[in-house]
Amino acid sequence: MSECIIVFNDVSKSYPIYHHITGGIKNFLFHLPKALSSVKNSRFVALKDVSFKVNQGETLGIIGENGAGKSTMLGLIAGVLKPSKGEVIVKGRISPLLELGAGFHPELTGRENIMLNGVLLGLTRSDVLKKIDEIIDFSELDEFIDQPIRTYSSGMLARLGFSVASSLNPEILLIDEILAVGDKLFQKKSKEALLKLINGGVTTVFVSHDLESVKEICHRAIWLDHGKVRAEGEPGKVVEQYKIML
């Protein structure tokens, strides 16, 4: 039995509804009693008593409607969100696959952005320098790599992002709808690269609305419905159940 890399024990996550606060200090003070009680009482439950495990090297697919709590789940795994209840255990270095351009700065060159991203994702500068040629090769950006990335097309940005995240030898890969961007050719290429990483033994959590990809890539799937696990198991079966509901 291989080791569990990600464990959710009865995890709930609720968000306070911050309307009164983000309206600014002025609003907050003018509606103080109301604001304080709204901070205390109105909470939106995004995940409710969710438990599951992901084994080493496994690829778990997460499907569900908009607002079901998929991104919240990834946020909990990445450690940027704290559970309101329950326990999240994650072992290993995480590489979240950033959305198009997230974590990139438009004024920096491709090369500088690789460095920035690599260090943000947990590597030291010398680690990144050792890998930078490999990353640039993979991205096929050639001479564009020393141009500021504000001049890149969105396909080129996606290439850069995918190359960084996949070349950093992550132990855990978190993917939130990233493969949908870019042209068909790039989608095919990144799917191949992803499969290669998966076959190389990286533990992956794959969130997607593309049910066919989920069936194709994942070893197991979870259907989230309004923050609860509605079905779990073999991707083909879970996807079928989900489709019936639609």
Partner: peptide, 9 residues
């Protein structure tokens, strides 16, 4: 913002 939402550093 996009970093803070995705990466735990």
């Amino acid at each position: 913002a996009s970093l803070i939402k995705k990466v735990n550093f």
